[in-house]
Design a protein around this nucleic acid. Structure first.
Length: 326
DNA sequence: CTGCATGATTTATC
DNA sequence: GATAAATCATGCAG
């Protein structure tokens, strides 16, 4: 009826059953006195209390009070079960390779890199390692913190349990209550853990977005690379669709990736088609260049009159789609 | 600052 | 999956 205490269920210090006494000694100043240091001879005091002739009477009074207040404890069922939010965070961290078994964070990083770079192997190595390193850093911090929390939680739980067990000799404390107390402590720590997980997720997201943004960072190819690509394009104007091997070769020569070569040809084809007239001049320039190159080669192979590259004669400037498309 | 060039991405199509 | 076409975003000369 008359509840003197209105402490919330999750409030450790205000928990029903008056556990302030249990938690109070957590504070350093009140820790059980060590021999020679404490001004209060605690063991002696406890002994005196336990042996006091009024102790059984006191104990029964406490039992009675408890009996009355126990009603407030019942009816508060522990809503246990995994928190959906924490599960979500766990899954996220697992997917990013931060949580879960050690795998160097590499697979997740690799997946992100592959998605960002277009999937070709061997590209984006610099960014890849940078991303990997950053992710590993986050991972290390996360695990260190998690372990710290876990340890702190265990220590605190042990401490509180010992205290309660100790106190149960003086006042009535059922094992159920201790269990409840442990539950409360664990919930408290799990909210702290959730904060850690949340901020870790945020860190990963920030890293990820920064990394993915970087892929849009455009750097013009070197003059030499542009030269090589243009030479190939204009000498294959009738069919400017390099084979896979040709792309690899060009990529090697230009120090770019195969997908960059594919991008370049895609852009070049469409832009050439869009502006044939203007690019015709460029086409002529590269035609001359190819012819000169070919001439210098063929001057050794006396009567070879076809240039080093096929289709370099005509510059049709249109209708080059391989499958009839335009 | 502006406009164009250009590499990358997205979307639709085959 | 490769490509065309449109679009985005940046680099860079003027």
């Amino acid at each position: 009826m008359d509840r003197s205490r209105a402490g919330g269920d999750d409030d450790i210090t205000g928990a029903p059953g008056s556990l302030d006494a249990a938690t109070a000694p957590i504070r350093p100043a009140a820790s059980t006195s060590l021999p020679g240091t404490g001004s209060v001879p605690s063991p002696l005091w406890k002994h005196a209390l336990n042996c006091h002739r009024m102790k059984p009477a006191l104990f029964s009074v406490l039992c009675e009070i408890k009996e009355r207040t126990a009603l407030s404890i019942r009816g508060i069922q522990e809503e246990d079960g995994p928190d959906p939010q924490i599960m979500r965070l766990d899954n996220m961290l697992l997917a990013e390779g931060v949580a879960g078994p050690e795998r160097g964070g590499a697979s997740a990083a690799a997946a992100v890199v592959a998605a960002a770079a277009g999937g070709s192997p061997g590209e984006g190595n610099v960014e890849h390692s940078e991303y990997k390193e950053k992710l590993a850093q986050i991972r290390r911090m996360y695990h260190a913190e998690l372990e710290k929390y876990q340890q702190a939680c265990n220590e605190f739980t042990d401490h509180v349990m010992n205290l309660l067990r100790e106190q149960s000799r003086t006042r009535p404390i059922s094992p159920k209550e201790i269990e409840r107390m442990v539950g409360i402590i664990h919930r408290k720590f799990s909210t702290i853990q959730m904060q850690l997980k949340q901020s870790t997720c945020e860190a990963v997201m920030i890293l990820r977005s920064r990394f993915l943004d970087a892929r849009r960072k455009r750097r013009n190819f070197s003059k030499q690379a542009a030269e090589i690509l243009n030479t190939y394009f204009y000498s294959h104007l009738a069919n400017p669709y390099p084979s896979e091997e040709a792309k690899e070769d060009l990529a090697r020569k230009c120090s770019i990736t195969v997908s960059q070569v594919a991008n370049w040809f895609g852009n070049k084809r469409i832009r050439y088609k869009r502006n044939v007239a203007k690019l015709q001049e460029e086409a002529n320039r590269y035609a001359v260049k190819t012819a000169v190159d070919a001439a210098s080669v063929s001057s050794q192979a006396s009567q070879a009159n076809s240039p080093a590259t096929p289709n370099s004669g005509g510059y049709p400037a249109q209708c080059y789609t391989p499958d009839g498309r335009l």
